[in-house]
Simulated assay, not measured.
Amino acid sequence: MKKHGQVVLVRLPTGPEMAALEKEYQPAFDRSLSSLARSLGVPYLNYLDQPYPTNDGNHITRGAAEQFSRRLAADIARLQ
Rank of each mutant, 00 (worst) to 15 (best):
E17D: 15
K2S: 13
I76G: 08
R31T: 12
T54G: 14
V8A: 11
A19P: 03
L40K: 14
L36Q: 07
L40A: 15
P43I: 07
N46V: 01
S32Y: 09
D49R: 03
A73D: 03
I60V: 13
A19I: 01
S34R: 15
D56M: 12
Y47V: 01
V8I: 15
D75S: 01
L9T: 01
N58T: 09
S35G: 12
G57T: 05
D56G: 13
R71Y: 07
L33D: 03
Y52K: 02
E24T: 05
R31V: 03
E66G: 05
G41L: 06
L45V: 04
V8E: 09
H4Y: 12
S32I: 03
L33C: 03
H59S: 15
R78G: 06
Q50V: 00
R78A: 14
F29W: 13
M1E: 13
D49W: 02
S32N: 13
Q80W: 04
S32E: 14
Y25C: 02
Y47M: 07
L79R: 09
P13K: 08
A19V: 03
A77M: 03
A37M: 05
G5P: 08
A37G: 10
T61A: 13
A37L: 05
Q80K: 15
N55T: 09
E22L: 15
V42N: 09
T61K: 15
N46L: 00
V42M: 11
A65N: 07
L9M: 13
G57V: 02
Q80T: 05
A37S: 13
T14N: 14
A74Y: 02
N58A: 14
H59D: 10
S32V: 01
L33F: 15
V10K: 03
E17P: 00
A73W: 01
G5A: 13
Q26M: 13
P16L: 08
N58Q: 11
K2Q: 15
I76Q: 12
G41T: 00
E24D: 14
P27F: 05
G41R: 04
P51V: 02
I76Y: 10
F68Q: 06
R31N: 12
S32M: 11
S34T: 08
P43D: 10
A20I: 07
N58E: 11
Q26D: 07
A19K: 07
S69P: 00
S32G: 11
L48T: 09
H4W: 05
I76S: 06
T14C: 14
T61D: 08
L21C: 04
P43Y: 10
A64M: 06
S35Q: 14
A65G: 15
Y47K: 01
L36S: 00
L36C: 08
A28L: 09
L21T: 08
G41M: 07
R11H: 08
H4K: 13
R70D: 10
Q26C: 04
N55L: 14
